[in-house]
Design a protein around this nucleic acid. Structure first.
Lengths: 326, 326
DNA sequence: TTGAAAGCGCTAACAC
DNA sequence: GTGTTAGCGCTTTCAA
């Protein structure tokens, strides 16, 4: 693999001249520049990224750390981030941590193979994040907040989303509300619970304790909850389900048991994953503006990279999407 | 940011000793090693990836180039790749080229910031691929073949998948077959067309030329084709649609027009995207083994990285998934 | 068991 | 305009 030195030698110039010639610097004579360029082309010269990064102390790359790619609208998020990254001459990489426990943190962040990162993965511990954050490696946290000079947050208001969805159910005439939450250690589940309960309190129809269930945020866990839900002596007339995966599973289970939706039980979910539009009836849900989230996260990262001071946490609002299930 | 030199100085050893001590080499005295380690810990030393890569001429990272993340089962593919990458001590990165035209090719491949890559993106030109492939940068091409010593292929048999699906429609009693293809410059569309026609020829029911349509592989393009399909004086009794997105769009359109599926028109798609299970009726389709594809692609890359000779192209078979639409 | 020294490929300050 | 020089932070001979 030919190096800059090979180019310089064959073009009869010094390495430094070759270097600036290749970067279209105006300090070199046009004829020299052309000679260098043609030699480079001819011998198939490729600049070495590692050498460049080592010297320049930046890589031109940013990472997006996700738990897994299957999540809702990650492609939207990434589209937002990529758009802005590209506009700033950066390349955005995606890394999933579900399988590669710690590996991506070490290679990309600890060893600084990227200039910064956007993290949307609650399975990455606060300690790990605090350990890698530094002035030369700003991190944007999505849906989480940690106090640290080089940590910035972009948040989505899950609480108000759940609040809107639940209020919508109540105001549609269903006062008998049930709630299906995610794992009790899930931050998202907790926020969504708070929002839902807040709506119930406002309308004075707080659900019975045994009308609050916990699933695993998966479709099958929603499906399996059907028994518990229907076993109740007084089945709730409407259920706020803390994510769409479970809502879709629950819906399938209910329909199999002959329960009519929304006539017997109304349903609202959270996330607006794609299949909510295809199930029958289509699912009422809460949409997070993932593309905008990506844009804002990337813009915040760019500002941090530029050394911008006082970046305050940004909070994005969710949107209630009313469909046939409620 | 403290460097190895800082660690060495504070530990009272040379840089080289510090270097091998940190890598748990047995050549250093246990006490020295511990001293180095504790100093490193104390001053927050992080090895610099660029310097390491520059010296060692490898990065420990591989890239997966996708057109966009929205595609069917990319998360499955990635799971397969990640599993194997991790088992080999490598970190897998994903990069989408839809927005970052060329940027990722330059940063990651041209400048060799990864050791190798897996490419599933027909929008990347053959020239670009040929330009970056080299002995030190083996590339695994998914669903495409290019002759080059450092290019390896893992293929999925789209042709036989389309053949199976179409044969299934015909043998279910529908001899009046229609075919909806993707863009005419799409390689996948072309392969699927060949398979479908092969089945028709075998059963001697080749579709009329005006019963073959072209869409854009998107849901909306499938939806828009409803008019053309129903405008025919002799609407086909069964339609093989070259991808699920279009099939789902078409199905929606047909149902809106009161066409019953499969009673009036039977449907089969291709890809087995998630929503095929949720539409009514669920869509018959062809599944590609994306996880296995990822495993095989990664394994092939590992072999190429090891300098393994004679790696022959691998072909994976698809699977027909029969559901209610046929 | 440890250290000195060379160099990976590149950039940039400074000299000519 | 172009060349000289000095590293960036690390690994790796080779000596001691």
């Amino acid at each position: 693999m030919p190096s800059l030195r090979d180019v310089a030698e064959q073009a009869g110039v010094s390495v430094s001249t070759a270097s600036i010639a290749l970067r279209h610097d105006t300090r070199v004579k046009e004829s020299t520049r052309r000679r260098v360029l043609s030699v480079a082309e001819e011998i198939g010269y490729r600049p070495n990224g590692a050498a460049r990064d080592l010297k320049s102390r930046r890589t031109g790359m940013i990472a997006i750390l996700l738990h897994d790619l299957g999540g809702p609208f990650y492609s939207e998020l990434l589209r937002g981030v990529s758009t802005r990254a590209q506009a700033n001459g950066l390349t955005a990489l995606v890394c999933t941590s579900a399988l590669d426990r710690g590996g991506e943190l070490t290679r990309l962040l600890r060893e600084k193979r990227v200039d910064g990162a956007i993290i949307l993965d609650s399975s990455i511990s606060e300690d790990d994040i605090l350990e890698v954050a530094s002035p030369s490696l700003p991190l944007i946290l999505l849906d989480r907040q940690i106090q640290h000079p080089n940590l910035y947050s972009v948040l989505c208001d899950h609480r108000s989303g759940a609040y809107m969805a639940t209020l919508h159910l109540i105001d549609a005439g269903y006062r008998d509300i049930g709630i299906i939450l995610g794992p009790s250690d899930s931050h998202h589940s907790h926020l969504r619970e708070e929002g839902a309960l807040q709506a119930c309190r406002l309308r004075q129809c707080v659900p019975r304790p045994d009308h609050i269930w916990h699933g695993a945020f998966t479709e099958s866990s929603g499906y399996q909850l059907v028994d518990s839900v229907l076993a109740s002596d007084d089945v709730p007339r409407a259920i706020f389900v803390a994510n769409d995966e479970m809502a879709v599973g629950l819906m399938r289970g209910l329909l199999e048991r002959g329960v009519r939706i929304p006539d017997d039980v109304a349903l609202a979910g959270f996330d607006d994953i794609r299949i909510t539009q295809y199930v029958s009836p289509p699912l009422t849900t809460v949409r997070q503006p993932m593309y905008e989230l990506g844009i804002l996260a990337a813009d915040t990262l760019m500002r941090a990279l530029r050394g911008d001071e006082d970046i305050t946490p940004i909070v994005l609002q969710t949107e209630l999407v009313v469909r046939g299930s409620s």
